[in-house]
Nucleic acid binder design. Structure first.
Lengths: 196, 196
DNA sequence: CGAAAATTTGACATGACTCAACTGGAGTGG
DNA sequence: CCACTCCAGTTGAGTCATGTCAAATTTTCG
């Protein structure tokens, strides 16, 4: 696949949701920059402003936070056709509280806040796309939050592997523990328990 | 205050963030319906589609979910100048998983999905307002989620009363416990501990 | 005033954490 | 190709925060 093919993934994605003209497709395609990232690389990090919003074309990422005790907490794993960034930081310029790390070699389309403003001016319909996207993210997080405070860790674990089958092949176990909000030792013990 | 005054609260709120014309203010004001709600009343409930998005002008509300064990979990308390609804349900028509209940007599401006679509067609800039609003909500929830899985209940309690001083006068203690994700007995004991 | 609801207290159970030791596999360099 | 290291995962023992259930007390409100 070449650059144009990768950008077509994005414009197709948008077209499916919004119906955009050929001209708009070109504006969009030229507003985003194609980047590839190596395994373990950090695309942005906690403490610095996040001036990148990415649309994942290929690969796997994790978005996580390190708390003041030094514990990592995975907010999400990202896959192709996902938008990932730290919106709060991206929009305000304040330091990010999140880290975005590559788990599997990734190809993504990226944009910075200034370019995004320009793009939104040129193609205002995209406001709607981004609204719907964030709305989706919010519903998902809401659901996860409620699950986290209402169900125990084994229930959350089973829910995760049902919702994302194959995740255990893609992501090391201690990161799954971190996603579930528990320690690796606890997840290990829990899995043993579940085998009965 | 009369109806026009209440609607002015909304148009002022929007004007502060977007700069809208007098004409647009009128369109907005006429798209929303003024409603008042009594203490304990449910504005929408779990299991039924939520066809209401509210802008609180006066009063206090709580948005909560009841899980399959019958436990209530408070997602948020809402105060004047907040938007409250169940976006997932509002936009798709699927049954809501949330309940919105009045804690203190409330006056709010409400809109249904069809009216909102019409309004957004007439005043497309509002797409941006709603995007920013949801974005804010998402950042807040993200932060809360991370706090919930990284800090213990007493830390979360202290954070809450610092962030919302006076909340203990407005909201019964068992609902604060529910907001914190713990049981009322635990909160009671915790507070006793903290007095040292 | 009296009933119902909210809060507190007690006794005990349990899920998850902590810290430390051990195991096993993947990769590296001699 | 082996020895070595490093990291992920497992296991063990003890602790702690919070849950559970039941009873006592206080507050709220009709």
């Amino acid at each position: 696949m070449n650059e144009a093919d990768y950008k077509k993934v994005l414009t197709d994605y948008i077209d499916k949701r919004l119906n955009i003209s050929e001209e708009e497709k070109e504006i969009i395609a030229s507003s985003y920059t194609l980047k590839s990232f190596q395994k373990k690389e950090h695309i942005f990090s906690q403490g610095k402003p996040c001036s990148i919003e990415t649309f994942v074309v290929k690969g796997t990422l994790r978005l996580y936070h390190v708390d003041n005790k030094g514990q990592e907490h995975v907010l999400l794993f990202a896959f192709p056709e996902w938008w990932v960034g730290d919106m709060a930081s991206f929009n305000t310029g304040e330091p990010s509280s999140l880290n975005l790390q590559v788990l599997e070699e990734t190809i993504a389309l990226v944009i910075d806040p200034t370019e995004k403003e320009v793009l939104l001016k040129k193609v205002p319909k995209l406001e709607r796309l981004f609204r719907l996207m964030i709305q989706k993210n919010l519903s998902v997080l809401q659901k996860r939050f409620l699950l986290t405070i209402s169900a125990n860790a084994s229930y959350r674990y089973l829910e995760l592997i049902e919702r994302s089958p194959g995740i255990e092949q893609l992501v090391p176990q201690h990161q799954i523990a971190s996603y579930l909000g528990i320690h690796p030792e606890s997840l290990s013990r829990m899995k043993k328990q579940l085998l009965k």
